[in-house]
Design a protein around this nucleic acid. Structure first.
Lengths: 196, 196, 196, 196
DNA sequence: AATGAATGAGGATTCATTCAT
DNA sequence: GATGAATGAATCCTCATTCAT
């Protein structure tokens, strides 16, 4: 008596490479949400779960936590860069986009606290690179005579503002962000995602 | 139900109650170092290990993480308060003492990021109380017409400066702290612990 | 924050998902044995150890002690219910099956001492639900004029009998169980597992 | 400069042997309360704390948990024996006193579940001895023709009734105890402590 | 004889990471 | 390429027990 139908465990279809891209975006989106809600220390398994993929896929795309964080922030940074590349861009405008991301995501705030992201080599370097890109995007539209123009003052200001962005509601966080910019003597444009 | 097997192993010397005070200071010192190096989320066991005491002693002295954090920060905050109570105290002077502690201890910086300290009840409340005490100490000497006098601006400034204090060396951290105060238009006195 | 050091140690074979079902039964069997031998408060780690699986597997299958207890008792209760659903079932017969399980497993006895199962919410509720199912199964065949028909008398009787079932040997426990029923004026059928 | 007043740690007066007796009763009373409230698995330290003595004293008087349990039960058993020795004693009356203790103390109930009290040798033997004394006290007034007169039936009945005594309120526990006796065909006198 | 601090093993639980299928 | 179960180290916390004073 041959019982060959015993091991029929249904396995989700393997959609091939096409699924890979889909999974990656799902993972990034999930990571963005999870990090935003629970901070950068959230369990990685939560990300896989929210993305509706197995743990293995997570590790295929992001070998470690830092990579996942980076993938999330990469998008944020790119939006800021795009805002800076826009023809009509102004310093205030780019600040507004930056502020939007700070208010939107706890993960992004962590970017400026790169030291804490992880002790494993490479992570910090990457985070630093990202924050430099943010700084460059802003500096591009910084009037030469601006008070933040000298030395590290711009980078420092970004870090300082990011620290101000705490609070349970988005409205509260935005208020604090704007107050922080004001204390630094910076006028901020509309707080919104670029193109949104 | 913790069912301990009847262990026979030789037990290290028990120095008796005399050790209590010694242990407590060892624990506070260890906690200060560990928190300064690894942040407020560092494993409590690391503190016990560095203090060369058993886990139980840690828990006897500090029933939870909040208590350990408090023990470390309490001293810092008190020093700032004492600086503020000094007859000759000035706003710049108290800022200097505050800055010294920020530069000295990552733990102290975390104080202003109370939201991250822990989800366990009590911790956050205590951290908030401590940061309010710091603010009150500073506000006491804030000239009425000072630009940080309004609303939450002083508290916000403290948080912002604390975020600026990163860097591998003490010198670097101090430079950044001073630059941050300068950006906020605040003149800081000598950066030193009160009475030191 | 669980910061795992990058362990290099060889990792025991991972038999993959196929092992899941096998592990689950191993865990239930182990739990049955451990609970039977050491009561419902036995260390969960003992169960994992006896099942030859890691702690994590235990928690994957049973999120808490209650779930593990339930998995063990669920089967016992179901057998009693099946006995009650049998066409030829009699009160004496169902009592016999109940008695068999009482004699077989200390865990099952604990069921009737639900109050002690655990202070953690959920456990007690579940235990109570199970004991109610046992009572319902018996009541189904309780002659209307039976002396245990009124109020809580049936539930009380079950609890009372379960307390009688102590002793080192199965034979001894069975004797005591039967004596207990007799004292309550209940005639019991053959003490055996249903269908066995 | 001689600092010889440094080590002045005040130490509570040592009242000598007189204190020993006082401590012992305090401990027994504390143990009774703690066991009654939290069951026989309660932390021993809770007993020392409630008795306002050091941990060491506890261990001096009771080398292990079993000894503490025994000390508590000893008093209960003695009261039952006294009730039985009273000139006017009846079976119903002694049952009433026994019932009072069952209702009063979770610890006493545990007596009849001696198997669970502890695995360390001696404990069980002592518990068994105590339960035998209870049985003897009852048996002394058991009418010869009583239905519980044969074999182990009396001991069994005691165990069975004790299992019935659960519930959050004393009133509830008493009701259940009385119902249990009734199911066994035993009439119980007033439920009260002997002489109380 | 009492005090009460210290010890440290043990149990619960959580995740990072691997890997058979 | 995807799945998701398994592993097991690490952390937290609780007590039983000892012992210097």
């Amino acid at each position: 008596m041959v019982e060959h139908s015993e091991q029929q465990g249904r396995r989700p279809a393997n959609d091939g490479p096409k699924a890979a891209a889909r999974n990656r975006s799902a993972l990034v989106a999930a990571a963005r949400e999870v990090f935003a809600e629970h901070g950068l220390e959230a369990p990685l398994s939560a990300i896989a779960r929210r993305a509706r993929v197995g743990q293995g896929v997570l590790y295929r795309h992001f070998p470690d936590r830092a990579a996942a964080v980076a993938a999330v922030l990469e998008e944020n940074v790119r939006q800021i860069e795009q805002a800076a590349e826009d023809g009509d861009a102004t310093f205030a405008g780019v600040c507004g986009v930056l502020t939007w991301h700070l208010v939107d995501s706890a993960a992004f705030i962590g970017l400026l606290h790169a030291e804490r992201v992880g002790s494993r080599s490479g992570t910090r370097a990457y985070a630093l690179e990202l924050s430099e890109r943010v700084e460059r995007a802003l500096r591009r539209h910084l009037p030469t005579e601006h008070r933040l123009g000298a030395g590290d003052d711009l980078a420092l200001s970004i870090a300082m503002v990011s620290a101000a962005v705490i609070g349970p509601t988005r409205a509260e966080r935005e208020l604090r962000a704007l107050a922080a910019w004001r204390l630094l003597g910076v006028e901020v444009g509309s707080v919104r995602t670029f193109g949104g």
